[in-house]
Simulated scan of single mutants.
Amino acid sequence: MSYDLLNGVRVLDLTAVVVGPAATWRLGQYGAEIIKVENPEGDLMRGLGGLSPTGQHAGAYLHLNRGKRNICLDLKAAGAPEVMTRLVAWADVIVANMRPKALTKLGLDADTIRTKHPDKIYCLLTGYGSDGPYGGFPTYDSVVQGAVGLPGLSLARDGEPRYVPLLICDHVVGEIAAGAIMAALLNRHRTGAGVTLEVPMFETMATMVLQEHLAAQSFDPPVGPYGDQRLLSPYNKPIKTKDGYIAVTINTDPQVKAFLIATGRTKIAADPRFASVAARAVNVAEWFEIRGAALDDKTTDEWLALFRATDLAAMPIHSIESLSHDPHLTAVGLMTQEVHPTEGASSVLRSSILVNGTVLDRRSSSAPKGWHSAEVLEELGFSVLEAKAMFEQGTAIAG
């Protein structure tokens, strides 16, 4: 049985790079129909995301733009406003991550659209909230990582600031934006009214960091320093084994006792400094030094067998290469192969979410630039001659 939870919902995608495409990708995974509008230069991520057979579908672009039809338009050309007027009328949801000034100039800002169409849901993804002093500043994932203190956390723990080697802010904020859009769709179903959403990357990620690391400073007066001292411990890292590394997390008192006995530290198991959650919180530095000490007398596989026998949470440390061949991911079919229309054989990642035990349907390949331009123009009511004129004038580009 197929589950299209957002069947019938139409999304106009005015986004590029990662944060916006991540949000609309998620909506597409749930069954929404998406039309992505791309400028003649193309989404920066087509090339910025790395190598590809044609140079037009970097891996990240390939994965983030599945299930979207693509129309290529020069939004500054004379005929483009009429195309956009019809696309806006077609859509239930408009998602944009262009700068607000550029959207206003094109007449594609929330106020302009929702004045004409109060039932539309308009979601603007920004770097910083428009009402604050940073509003309108340009940004990218690494800049937001720095602004919210992620490299600062590495500095506090490891003595050197480092970015998370993943576009973590883009992905997280994109997912949160998709959730906000779905809440707005539920509200519209109940009330008939649209809403304007703004999802700023800085504030969204700052909230996540502070939820963890405001910590003892959350109280007035404070009861301790900033930062979750467990997470900031230099010993909070993968544990060295005889032939690699292993990830182990132990939190409850029974888990701690089982871990200490399994690793031959029976005397420590009786130490009152580590005998309870409260005691370990007081002695967090000493506890994490013990917990993070090397286990280099056994291999990773030997430790995994031992820990799993006592029901402890433990996994090997994957490399990027080994993750794509993980036996569990292979068994559940997270990644398969397909033939892309221009790139040939390519890997496909399905949604990780199951509905009533059923995997959500895989969506169509990410489309080459302008692949659906003629098809979309026809559906919007433009005649063959009108579409031909747009292509000849460069207003629209066909794939």
Rank of each mutant, 00 (worst) to 15 (best):
Q56S: 14
A60Y: 01
E38Q: 06
G42Y: 02
N39S: 14
T85E: 14
E82C: 04
G55F: 06
G49W: 04
V37G: 11
A77R: 13
T54E: 11
I35W: 09
G67Q: 01
R46S: 08
R66N: 05
G55M: 10
K36E: 00
N70L: 01
E41I: 00
C72R: 02
N70Q: 14
I35D: 13
L64W: 00
E38C: 12
I34G: 07
L75M: 15
M84I: 10
Y61L: 05
R66K: 06
G79A: 07
L44V: 08
L75N: 10
L51D: 14
A78D: 15
P53Q: 13
I35F: 11
E38P: 03
L48P: 04
G47F: 01
L44Y: 06
S52P: 07
L75E: 12
H63A: 11
P81T: 01
K76E: 12
E38N: 08
G59T: 00
A58I: 02
H63G: 10
G59F: 07
H57F: 11
A60W: 04
R66Q: 15
G59Y: 01
P40M: 14
M45P: 01
L64E: 10
A32P: 11
D74A: 15
I34L: 09
K68L: 08
M45A: 07
K76D: 11
S52V: 10
G55N: 10
P53V: 07
Y61V: 04
C72N: 00
C72D: 03
A32D: 06
V83A: 09
G42R: 07
L44Q: 01
L62N: 04
V83S: 11
L64F: 11
L44S: 10
L62R: 00
H63K: 00
M45G: 01
K76T: 08
N70S: 15
D74M: 07
R46A: 03
G50D: 11
I71C: 10
T85F: 08
K36Y: 03
R69T: 10
L62M: 12
M45Q: 06
L73P: 06
H57W: 05
T54Y: 12
A60R: 06
L51C: 14
G79C: 02
D43Q: 06
H57R: 09
K36Q: 01
G42L: 02
D74W: 08
H63C: 05
L62E: 09
L44P: 05
E82T: 03
E38L: 08
I71E: 05
L62D: 11
G47S: 06
C72P: 09
R46W: 00
S52M: 13
P81Q: 03
G47H: 03
K68V: 06
L51W: 15
